[in-house]
């Protein structure tokens, strides 16, 4: 069954304190050479039918209205067969 993956990330200009905390942990754990960490969300959506244009359009709408907040976040949607 086709799977649709939606990645949601805070926009670059929005402060990401969680990513910054992870970055701090890297340093404490002796991992260097990392310039930045940003934390986001990944949604894996399994369709029960074909990935039709209509089904994908519905998921784009959900990604924009529900899964992300366009004020602070952007999303990337892709179909993985």
């Amino acid at each position: 069954m086709p799977r649709v993956v939606v990645d949601v990330m805070l926009k670059p200009e929005i402060l990401d304190p969680q990513g910054r905390a992870v970055m701090g942990a890297f340093t404490r754990l002796g991992v260097h050479g990392v310039a930045d960490v940003r934390q986001g969300k990944r949604f894996e959506i399994t369709l029960d039918g074909d990935a039709t244009d209509e089904a994908i359009a519905d998921l784009h709408r959900m990604a924009e209205e529900l899964l992300s907040n366009p004020v602070i976040e952007s999303y990337d949607l892709r179909v993985e067969e």
Partner: peptide, 16 residues
């Protein structure tokens, strides 16, 4: 804010 009745958004406290 999520309803777009007011602009902007509330995010994680900067100090976590």
């Amino acid at each position: 804010c999520e309803s777009h009745l007011l602009p902007g958004a509330l995010t994680r406290n900067d100090h976590l």
